Structure formats: structure tokens, C-alpha cells
Amino acid sequence: MITVSGARETARARLTTKRAAWATAVHPEPVLTIPLKPPSEREMLADQRTAERWAQDWAAVTGAAVDWETRSWHSIGRQRIPVRLVLASPDEVASFVGGDELRQWRSLRRRVARLRTVIADDVTRSDEVAAAMRRSAEQLLRYTDDEFEDVLHGTRWLIDNPVRGLRPRQLPIRGVDTKWFSAHRGILSALHRAATGQDGLGIVDSDPLVRLRVLDDALAVGGIAELAAPASALARLRCTPRAVMVFENLESVLALPAWPGAIAIHGSGYAVDVIGSLPWVQQRPVLYWGDLDSNGFAILSRLRTHHSDVRSVLMDQDTLLGYRDMWVREPTPNRGVFAALTGTEERALKRIRDEGDVRLEQERIEWAAALEALRRAWDELG
């Protein structure tokens, strides 16, 4: 027998997973039917009091359609019992669930309606607007009323006023500063794109900075041994290191000692796209050291698409297994296939995945052991 509370949990789960789609659909379909699994005659005879309370609980339900049927049983005669709960609309599902979920549903539905009224002037783009709102539904729910009004106002203003070529600081939207725009840029851009069909706002951004250390004084430009600059500026450097070391971890870059012929670069995340394309880096071999996890290997493989001579350090199965007690779980594993890995690296990645998407961070490896491995790899460059 499905109890009222059990059906409510089923409805709550469905509402949680479907509310974004339901709130943004113009005509949502009938949404939920729950069979109540009524007792058989034998079950009724075994515990008639429980069965009667179960039926009474369903009889007390209001605001939702409960289908009843009459059963004729040899031992207890004709009995009218509930057989299914039919919730024909998202509103009925939310009302049946009640509590915070009902309040959230009503809030989301109101906000979607406001957005649709304010930004969906072009009916030919209503599907795109609905899709953008659906993807942003959880964020819309998290806003306070004041925050939502600010986002609504900002979106409408951006739709009506071209801003291509402006920097965030130049946006003449009352109450909008750079910090606010950065925090809400994702949803503003998504809604603007959906409503206008334009690819991006055209806001001018600062180039990301790449941080590097020159470990050999003879290579320092103007005596500067450490700097952070846009890739366009770094590309103009005239330097000839023997090799370049690229580390995923900034502290590892900063901890390196003086090293003849070496320049070390912080390859944070997918900044390797930029690093691997620098002309003076292209001319020298690269030693790459990243976290031993799926994303570390994804970055390594990506770097090799930009540079023909990249050699990994401490990214092998022996290193992984030697620090088993330091493993943690990788929060968002990369499931991709990385074509540019060597056989040794592929075996390490397979072991990482076979062990349940584990992760060995660079800083878990003793610094003395890391330096020794780096020096061996450096000597093998020839």
C-alpha cells in the first residue's frame, strides 16, 4: 500500500527534478499518476485495521484527484478503496507536496512569468527564451526578490541598449557596478542571447594574466624574474630558455629554486591553451607536472595539441600508488578520451578511474621527492 506520505515523497522528487521544465513550458502535459497498490483480500483480512486507516487517510486528501474502485470480496463483501492518485498539473503536484517546495514552485512560476513578459517580445524566439530560463531556473530561485528585480531590470536594459565595445565599468545601468555585473553576467548573457539571437554581449574583457618565474638570472628581462602578463605581451618576449616547466599548482612554481636555463609557468587549468602557443615556448621542450587525476591528464593532453614536445613528470602509476594514503575523490571527473597521452600516462589514468575517480594533488608529494624527479626529467632532455 502506498501511503499519503509515501506518495507525497514521490511527488516531491518529481517536482524537484521537473520544476524547471514545468515552469518554463507554455502548456505542460498532465504530469503524475501514482498507483496506490491497494491491499488484496488476504492482506485486508490479515490487518483490517491498518487497511481501514490507510483508506481513511486517502479519503481525507483534498485538492488532488484520488480514483476509487469498488471491490467485491468473498470474506468481507463490497469495499470501496483508493487505487490511484492523479495530479494533472504542476500546480497540483506542488499543492499536494506543500511546504517549502510549494513556496519555491510559486516563486519560480511568478519569476518565469515576469521574465517572459519583460524579455520575450519576439514570439519567434519564445522557445529560446524558455530554454534559457529552464537552464537558469535554479539560479532564479536562489535570488532574493530585490536581486531578481535587479536581474530583470539589467536584462531588459541590455536588450534595449547595445553595449558592444564597452568595458563592465562603463555600463550606464543605474545600480550596476563591475562586481555586480561579474556575479550575474552568466544569466544576463544567457537571457540576452535567447531574446535577441546575438552571440554575446560584446563586453570588452581584460586578457587573463599568465604568471611565470624566470629561474635563471641570465634570462631575466630587464632584471625582472617574476611577472604576470597577458599572453599577447608574453608572446613578444625575446628569451631562449633551455626548457620550460609548466605546473598546474602555483605554489610549486613559486617554491622552485634557481635553475640554470629554466623558466617556470603556472599552467592554471586550461591556461595551457595560451602557454603552448607562445612562440618562445614552442621552440623549447616542456616539462609538465599536474595533479594526478582525470582533469590533470585532460590538461596535459590539451597542452600537447599546441606543443609537439611535452613530457610529463610524476604522472605515472608508480607515483599514484606510492601515495595511496593521500588520495581524495575527484569532485568532477573528466570522462573524455585523451588521444595525446603516452602509454604510461594512459595506464595511470585507467588506474585512477578503476579506483573510483581518485585524485593525488601535487602538494601531497614531498617537495624533496618532487625536485629529484624534476631534475631527472631535466637531465633527460639532453
Rank of each mutant, 00 (worst) to 15 (best):
L85P: 02
A120S: 15
Y143G: 02
H153R: 15
V61K: 10
R110V: 00
E147G: 15
T155Y: 02
A113C: 02
W54P: 07
G98Q: 10
E101W: 05
V123P: 10
T117K: 08
W58P: 05
F96I: 05
I81T: 12
F148R: 09
E52G: 00
A113Q: 13
E138T: 11
W105N: 02
Q139W: 11
L152D: 03
D67M: 07
V97L: 09
R106T: 09
D47P: 02
D160E: 15
T62Q: 15
E138S: 14
M133W: 06
L141R: 12
A94K: 05
G99Q: 13
A64V: 03
A137E: 07
L45Q: 14
R109Q: 14
A64F: 05
E147A: 15
A120I: 02
R135I: 01
T155V: 14
E43T: 10
V61H: 06
T62H: 11
R106P: 01
A65K: 15
L87Q: 03
V129Y: 04
V129G: 04
L141V: 08
M133K: 04
G99E: 12
G63A: 11
Q48I: 11
Q48D: 06
D57S: 13
V66T: 03
P90R: 11
D67S: 10
V163Y: 03
I159T: 09
I119S: 02
G99N: 13
A46F: 02
E52R: 13
A60K: 13
Q48M: 10
L87W: 03
P162Q: 04
A88Y: 01
F148S: 06
Q104S: 12
T144H: 09
A120W: 01
L140Q: 04
Q139E: 14
V66I: 11
D146S: 12
H153N: 07
V86R: 15
W157T: 05
H74C: 00
P82R: 10
V93P: 06
F148D: 04
Y143E: 10
R114N: 09
A46L: 11
T70H: 05
A65L: 13
S89N: 04
Q79H: 12
F148M: 09
T50D: 09
V163W: 01
E147F: 06
V93M: 09
G63V: 08
H74N: 08
S89D: 08
A131W: 07
V123C: 03
A64H: 09
A55P: 01
H153I: 08
S72M: 02
A60G: 02
S72K: 13
V83T: 15
E138W: 06
T155P: 04
I159D: 07
W73F: 11
M133I: 06
E138G: 03
E101H: 14
A55S: 15
A60Q: 12
G77A: 07
R135N: 11
D67C: 05
V86P: 00
D91V: 04
L45E: 13
R80F: 01
Y143C: 11
T70V: 14
Q79L: 13
D67P: 00
A46G: 01
A120G: 15
M44E: 03
R78F: 01
R71A: 07
V163M: 01
R71S: 03
R142F: 00
W157F: 12
D100G: 08
S107P: 00
R71C: 02
E52C: 00
W68Y: 10
S126W: 06
D47I: 00
T62F: 05
T50Q: 12
